[in-house]
């Protein structure tokens, strides 16, 4: 009996995360400004990390946590890269450009 309860709990948590991801996607669709969209992309990434972790526990393969860790890394870098691009309109050599302007 008690061995089936964890399955149920993880399934409910997975459904909750799924609902939250849909809500955040609605904000991504509606968001009036660019920054709303970046913010919802970022929290969508955080929820994806949690989703992958819970999915690993549900399917009995906690090795999924490696993928979750990798996703957390990529999510952070992509948020910073998007913000940097829209602020300076360049991803790479900003310092050189600034010095050239001076």
């Amino acid at each position: 009996m008690i061995s089936t309860v964890p399955h149920f709990v993880f399934l409910i948590a997975l459904l909750m995360l799924f609902i939250a991801m849909i809500l955040v996607l609605l904000r991504l669709y509606k968001g009036p400004t660019l920054y709303d969209r970046v913010l919802s992309t970022n929290s969508f990434g955080t929820q994806t990390v949690l989703f992958i972790g819970v999915l690993g526990f549900l399917s009995g393969r906690p090795d999924f946590l490696d993928i979750a860790l990798l996703y957390a890394l990529i999510n952070f870098v992509s948020t910073i890269a998007i913000l940097k691009f829209f602020r300076y309109r360049a991803i790479g050599d900003i310092l050189i450009k600034r010095e050239a302007k001076k």
């Binding site: 709990v9 995360l17 955040v24 920054y35 709303d36 929290s43 929820q47 819970v54």
Partner: peptide, 27 residues
């Protein structure tokens, strides 16, 4: 189990708040 379920509820509340709140700074 209690921790996992309440964590799921908190995630839903956060997503709901970012849908309901009126402007960017409150989101």
């Amino acid at each position: 189990w209690i921790c996992i379920l309440s964590g799921g509820i908190l995630v839903i509340i956060g997503a709901l708040g970012s849908l309901r709140f009126p402007d960017f700074w409150s989101r």
